[in-house]
Amino acid sequence: MSSTIDQKVAVLLDDGKRSPLKKTMAWLLHLSLFAAILAVWGLSAYFLPEKHQYLFPSPKTTMTMLWESLPELLASTGASFLILGPGYVGAVFLGAFGGIVVGGSERLQQIFIPFARVVAPVPPTIYTPYAIALLPTFRTSAIFIVLLATFWPVFLNAVGGTLAVPEQHRDSAKALGLGRFEYLTKVAFPSALPYIFNGMHVGLGMAFIMLTVAELFGSTSGLGRFVQYYADYADFPRMVAGILYTGLVTFLSMTALGWFQRKVIFWPY
């Protein structure tokens, strides 16, 4: 199945049936690497000569900056999500819908799949300068780039998921006399959902990359812009805080998507 690693990690992190002692032990282990890195960071910042400390801020300095910049970071998050949201959601709808329609028709596959093979592997970052030049506002061009980056993984996975509908479901659909539309909506779509979510996970990663890259080019707000701005002014403590914060936002978004997936696909697959 497509998201094997995710499932294995979920099993690994599933504390449901263990004793409190084992749970505590497990959490200590989950956090141990974070603690170790924090310790190494703190110690190296402490022993670093004073003149380098500006480039390599201590955890404490960084946290202070993070706290100070929080209002600005939250505003940046809002700006970023105004791009990410429409681009990502639009791409998921288009990709899932298009993928299922194409996956359900041999003729459409003959038209679209060779094209997708050529266009999908093109790194979407390459479109960025042209999109910014072509489209009227920065926001529309950034949305377009995010959309493009998310579309392909969702689309290709939706096609794959529709082609991979298990034989017994195809047979049942035939035996029940389901028409083409009913087959696509009631059988192929739910059956392809695990694949579609796999594409959505890949797509979300791509969307964040594209978002931050696009913001480096020409935006006036946003998370990528925040980091770039303070790097330009050599305010490295703030910049590091921005990196950490962006990492956290990405992690939380991915976690939310995983939670959403478990809500939507409630049956074993």
């Binding site: 017994q168 035996a175 006399g177 389901l178 009631k186 059988v187 697959y269």
Partner: peptide, 28 residues
């Protein structure tokens, strides 16, 4: 080709797992 005049029951796992029992049957 298949026809609902000739209904078939398979060995296993033929109900759609994303539909409630009654919705599986309602489809038929």
């Amino acid at each position: 080709g298949p026809s609902i005049e000739r209904g078939i029951v398979f060995q296993e796992y033929s109900l759609f797992p994303w539909l409630r029992l009654k919705d599986n049957v309602a489809l038929a």
